[in-house]
Design a protein around this nucleic acid. Structure first.
Lengths: 229, 229
DNA sequence: TCCTAGCGGAGCGATTTGCTCCGGTCAACC
DNA sequence: GGTTGACCGGAGCAAATCGCTCCGCTAGGA
């Protein structure tokens, strides 16, 4: 990961390096939060301020705003993939699926959907997305084979559900207002909603209405640039 | 409603009046759509353009951008109240609740949540909100008394659920891209998700986790102005 | 003591904002 | 046919905000 020249790790300027790394983490998290509340209009100044660093430090690490956003997406896709694989590692198919859904919706990475279409899709993003999708597919197949997940549910259904639940207007709004005292209550409220939805996913109820959604619904969103401006 | 001097209704300048009314309708619908995609940053120019009118016409009807947004909120609250009363008029308690949820989530009025906190709450808004809340409470009580709705669900649960489902990132994004060809497929996909959630609301499953959410979660969002700027 | 990697943020030009203001249009009257 | 006047669309304004550059400064290592 690091190009080694003259003692890395605990090398000469190790303290600076550590600070830089902390700043990078803060930057990425701040970006997620600001995008969650401001959408694609999120400004670099707001992101830097929230991270507690100067805009200069931001631009030393990312050549452009778009590059930062792309990095953010790649990390989110990594998180999805990791969550799906953790779910697959669990013995119970239902618990595995719920584990994935919880991880994918509760970490806040779903909030960066608004930047879809405003940045270019890097090869890394496409690859990570592909691998994540396959893992989720396995998760679904396994749960349906065990008869615990409604049989007519598709990957697209789950993807759309993840996106719908990943964004929490309430939490984002409270965060923007600085009402950290209500965060715990809001998290509790959200977990109740999610529990309702998970129960709705269980097999045993009447078939869903309509037809299985096409995967085009998802791919088209990222492949196009915004509508001519 | 109109100050009558020299024949109103089919009066002398009736044609102009009709055009003005059409413009007003278009303006309100355009505002909803633009807010859905751009959030609170939605610009008056974008709204006017989407409505197909000049900004001048917008400002003749609303003295300020905030006034337009307030009107929009009042209309949305009217729609909620009407939907709840329609639900109460239905014989079956479950069908009545689902009717309300569908109406409240599918009309797109939920998308204006992002402007919460950016505009002042008018007395009319507070009143309409109060009456709507009471109607929803009756809807919930009735369904729980009939044993068809999970007994631990509260008004706040339902309000949060309405907000969560009211915003459709997929539909808004496709609309922003002008992909009207995919709208029907997106509507189908959304109705499937909603069906899943409605099934999750039905009585007969294990109790929800956590504790009933406090109503403070909702009221606080509207009562405060944004965090000092 | 000096060196220098990395820092924060003032400031740049370009863009976008909410809003005003005015010339043009068209149905209704004389 | 000419006049009127309500209503329209959008050019244009000052102010705010944008992405990004640049530079003076701080603080650890030699």
């Amino acid at each position: 990961m690091t190009t080694e020249r003259s003692k890395p790790g605990t090398g000469p300027r190790a303290a600076r390096r550590a600070e830089a790394e902390r700043n990078d983490k803060a930057l990425l998290e701040a970006a997620r939060e600001v995008i969650a509340t401001d959408g694609a209009h999120a400004s670099v100044a707001a992101i830097a301020a929230r991270a507690g660093v100067g805009v200069g430090s931001l631009y030393r690490r990312y050549r452009t705003k778009e590059e930062l956003f792309q990095k953010l997406c790649e990390l989110a896709l990594d998180a999805y993939l990791a969550a799906a694989e953790e779910g697959l590692a669990m013995a119970d198919p239902w618990d595995g699926l719920v584990h994935y859904l919880r991880a994918a919706t509760e970490h806040g990475t779903g909030s960066l959907a608004p930047i879809a279409g405003t940045i270019d899709v890097t090869p890394a993003m496409a690859d990570k997305n592909e691998r994540g999708e396959q893992a989720v597919r396995r998760l679904i197949d396994r749960a349906q084979a065990a008869g615990v997940l409604r049989p007519e549910i598709t990957v697209v259904d789950i993807d759309l559900l993840t996106e719908q639940l990943g964004k929490s207007p309430l939490l984002e709004h409270l965060a923007a207002q600085g009402r950290t005292d209500l965060t715990e209550a809001a998290l509790n409220a959200r977990s109740r909603l999610h529990a309702i939805v998970f129960d709705g996913l269980r097999a045993g109820t009447a078939p869903l209405p309509g037809y299985p959604p096409s995967s085009e619904l998802f791919t088209e969103r990222w492949s196009r640039r915004p509508p001519t401006g």
